[in-house]
Structure formats: structure tokens, C-alpha cells
């Protein structure tokens, strides 16, 4: 799966969590722009993990602050899986 496909899938998954309809750009941050709390993060990460059949550990999540970094990480993880 190339990066654009990963991006498209994650864009779909993020929709129900993007309650305020924030425009999703590469640099959109989860904490400040999207205001995800820890429970939202858990549910959102679980959706991505199920979709791509990967694990994104908390240690890896700590490195991911914005949308672009998430797409990069998932792209790499699903290629390695």
C-alpha cells in the first residue's frame, strides 16, 4: 500500500473523531488542533490498528504529534508487517 492509500484510509477513519470538522493537514496536531483526549486517542488508534492489522504501541504514539507523522508511521508499520 502506498502512502496516498494509507492517507486516504486514515482520513476516513478520523472523520467520526473530528467532532469540530477541523481541516486535516499534514501538520494538524492531535492534541492541540483536534483536541483528542486520552480515551479518544485509544479508540482512534484501535480503529487504525484494526484497519491495517498493526500495533502502534504507546511508545510509538509518543513520537506522533501530527497527522503527517501518523501517516508516515502507519505506512512504515504496515509495510513491515
Amino acid at each position: 500500500m502506498d502512502r496516498a492509500e494509507v492517507d486516504a484510509k486514515i482520513r476516513n477513519l478520523i472523520e467520526p473523531f473530528n467532532k469540530k470538522g477541523v481541516e486535516i493537514k499534514e501538520e494538524t496536531t492531535f492534541q492541540n488542533d483536534l483536541e483528542f483526549d486520552s480515551l479518544t486517542v485509544m479508540d482512534f488508534v484501535a480503529e487504525i490498528e484494526d484497519e491495517f492489522d498493526i500495533i502502534i504501541s504507546m511508545n510509538q504514539q509518543a513520537e506522533i504529534e501530527n497527522y503527517g507523522q501518523l501517516v508516515d508511521a502507519v505506512h512504515k508499520l504496515q509495510a513491515d508487517a
Binding site: 485509544m42 484501535a46 504501541s57 504507546m58 511508545n59
Partner: peptide, 13 residues
Amino acid sequence: GCAMGNAEVVPFK
């Protein structure tokens, strides 16, 4: 305990 160690931490619902 998880934070103090070096393992990968994976929570579930």
C-alpha cells in the same frame, strides 16, 4: 511500572 521500564506498551479497551 510500564513507564519506568523499556517494554512496548499496548493498552486495550
